[in-house]
Design a protein around this nucleic acid. Sequence first.
RNA 1: GGCCCUGUCGUCUAACGGUUAGGACACCGGUCUUUCAAGCCGGCAGCAGGGGUUCGACUCCCCUCAGGGCCGCCA
Length: 481
Amino acid sequence: MVRTRIAPSPTGDPHVGTAYVALFNYAWAKKNGGQFILRIEDTDRERSSEASEEMIFASLRWLGLSWDEGPDVGGPHAPYRQSQRTTIYQQHVEELIDRGAAYPCFCSKDRLDALREQQRRAKAPVMGYDRHCRSIPKAEAQARRRAGEPHVVRLAMPTQGITKVRDFLRGELEFDNTLIDDQVLLKSDGFPTYHLANVVDDHLMGITHVIRAEEWISSLPKHAQLYRAFGWEEPVFCHLPLLRNADRSKISKRKNPTSLNFYRRAGFLPEAMLNFLALMGWTMPDGREEFTLDEFVEAFTLDRIVLGGPVFDLTKLTWLNGKYIRTLGPQELLRRLRSDLLSDAYLLKILPLVRERIDKLEDFIAYASFFFVGEVSYGPDVLPKLVMKTSSPTEAAAILEELLEEELDPLLDWSKENLEARLRRFAEARSLRAGDFFMAVRVAVTGKTATPPLFETMEVLGKETCRRRLRHAVAVLKGKA
RNA sequence: GGCCCUGUCGUCUAACGGUUAGGACACCGGUCUUUCAAGCCGGCAGCAGGGGUUCGACUCCCCUCAGGGCCGCCA
């Protein structure tokens, strides 16, 4: 029985990379008549949020990648949310300690920071924990734990030899054990790190194929050692290439739209999105480039995955999406438009803001057009407002860019209250004239100087549209668009 | 810096030792058309470099180079 999983961390907007990995996992499970599981890896208490988790569910559902077991649908291995499984991890950690495969570490954050800094300055070839606490006698260590001394638990890596692990696509990989440090398994807050939780859950949930992104290869030996320490059979590991920006770095939101919400709002069809993602590092045996999810599943094999990191090319996605749109009849197209961009829910949010400002129904289209288009243009009449009185175009660009990255990108609850609080905080911190600054944001986000109230407008436009237009405004100000 | 992964047109890729190195996007031309698209036809463009192995290398091996990832009590 084949069982695969997607294990996203709910720490931000739903990521296109998650959809990519989910697609391949889904396909492999379905191809083999197995199960595809959704597990939420919310062990980072600082960054995880319910809002993010909900967006992940919504995005995967939008794409049509349905899961057989998960936090919302349950299953035989519930719970599927790691924050609800802490006692399981703690028990397993005790087992490792008993076996001598893990040990408590009492080193402070300060000590570790200093150590890292020292290694960095000395350009030490081997970075990482110096195993300071590994030599503490077990009895003493346990006594200190019982006394309540803050600590983490680390994996006791073999101090010599090599770890061999097989990657389905790359063959046998070898890692020098002396170069791998003792990974933290259990944090001082009692939560597991990814490494522990991932291995324990994959085993307990009967995952047969771990299909994940290439960025995990470097921690593969740690995972392999964990399986071996527990005496568990290892799953098949298959590392997918990383999606790339045009400059070939790992795909990032500074250089690409990475939020699935962006694609949905922009009107990319889920089937086109999946089709395109399937083309990233995989091809049909017969060379066909246009195919449905079911056809993909039917033809899918892991061995046709290509290892070079594919550049995520919005142009080709757009072309494919156009092909899909052209296959839809007017009725179906209408249904698609009505489901998001022209939904009653969306229109109902816009109308209260626009009602006071129009006198004839036909005025609606002209007045409210910026609620429906993608990017907006900045004519000579509004451009000075975008620049702001006190700054140069370059400075204005920098300000908007900082606003985006510091205040807006991290904001998941896109409400007018939060927006107002963030924008005001930002303006004050930088001593920007409120009127001037808010007008610049207004223009950036709507292309107009006269609009409904800014925060309400931004709330209705939504994060993706605001983000996208702010980005565009920055590019315009920099003379790059 | 160390370790690891990767390397065919600008981009996505086919090729499983023997091909004029094929297709798709983009771009350029043409065609259709009242316009713009779409469609159709055509064109441009690539095996990172150097050594081997072999009768024969894009394909196998080695070195170099280049790109990427990781080096967190983040995943």
